[in-house]
């Protein structure tokens, strides 16, 4: 088991290095000179050269990469040349908590809504409930989040006035206000994910319910609720956790749109701004951070299997 875990960690490191090279070179290949973008329409050749040298963009690409990787690992992420702030504190202390709070709320909401719906679907397979939930799940998965966000804003914030339209209030500073601000964005972000969880839960549960140990449990006369939530649920945890881990990428992607629509100062909005502004350093830091997050979460998912399923511990 330990050897397997070590192998996983090693794989993760290799993937991280590949990601770092990819994110570094992708941006180099993208069109648009960052110096020109920064200087706008009015600039002289001198200010151009000076800025280029200042940013280290006149060095060989390999040097730029190694220098950047070294700095990244040591937490020296440099200064944003647009925002003129320290990127590490900007990204990690300001943007990251916003995105983590938003994604955590969205995932919790998706689980809280999706898992029971999926279980109901499986237990009442082929009933009206099942068909209705499947239709809802499909709609949720297919609905574009930016559009849903705008619809939610117009209805719940403008017409009804229940929730604020935009902005972020840290829940650790003002819990209720923070939660009120998070309701619409979290609902927007979790919609497609709810559909996904419903479908995975249903499929896994249907399979589990057909297993002999379930039949045996029912035959023993155990209460139905206990059969489903203890014997059944325990066995769908693995596919469920796997999906949540894998879908984290999609959630982070959805966060970009959600943060823009609701004007939340998170990683997604920071990244789009940085991409549009050709802020090399900031994009690289943002991509590396989100990729690292994604990869680490999936490593955690991998490592959690033996705890979720005792049968794997023997190997």
């Amino acid at each position: 088991m330990l050897a397997r875990a070590a192998a996983k960690v090693f794989q993760t490191l290799v993937v991280l290095i590949i990601v770092s090279i990819a994110s570094f070179s992708l941006l180099k290949l993208a069109p648009g000179d960052p110096v020109v973008i920064m200087l706008g329409t009015e600039y002289s050749q001198e200010s151009y050269d000076e800025l280029r040298a200042q940013l280290g963009l006149d060095r060989p690409v390999a040097v730029q990469y190694l220098r950047w990787l070294g700095d990244f690992v040591t937490g020296d992420w440099g200064n944003s040349y647009v925002a003129k702030t320290d990127i590490f504190s900007f990204v990690v202390q300001e943007a990251l908590p916003v995105t983590l709070t938003l994604t955590a709320c969205a995932i919790l909401l998706a689980i809280a809504v999706g898992v029971p719906l999926g279980v109901i679907s499986a237990v009442r397979k082929d009933s009206g409930w099942d068909v209705g939930i499947a239709a809802l799940a499909l709609t949720g998965t297919a609905f574009p989040s930016f559009f849903l966000g705008i619809v939610l804003i117009w209805f719940f914030a403008v017409k009804v006035g229940f929730f604020p339209v935009m902005g972020f209030v840290p829940p650790w500073e003002d819990f209720w206000s923070g939660m009120l601000h998070l309701v619409l964005p979290a609902a927007t972000l979790s919609t497609f994910f709810i559909g996904m969880i419903v479908r995975v839960t249903r499929a896994a549960m249907v399979e589990v319910l057909a297993q002999p140990y379930i039949t045996a449990a029912i035959a023993r006369g155990e209460p139905r609720r206990r059969v489903i939530w203890v014997h059944g649920f325990r066995n769908i945890l693995m596919p469920l956790v796997t999906v949540i881990g894998l879908q984290l990428g999609a959630i982070l992607q959805g966060a970009v749109l959600t943060e823009t629509v609701f004007s939340l100062p998170g990683l997604g909005q920071m990244l789009t701004g940085a991409v549009l502004g050709r802020e090399y350093v900031l994009v690289q830091a943002g991509v590396m951070l989100t990729a690292t997050l994604f990869i680490l979460v999936n490593l955690a998912v991998d490592l959690s299997y033996p705890f979720l399923d005792p049968r794997l511990r023997a190997r």
Partner: peptide, 18 residues
């Protein structure tokens, strides 16, 4: 000065008094 990228979000916030 609230920095908002999306004009329709800003307009919704204005209409709702935020």
């Amino acid at each position: 000065m609230m920095l908002i990228d999306e004009p329709s979000t800003a307009l919704a916030a204005l209409i709702s008094g935020q």
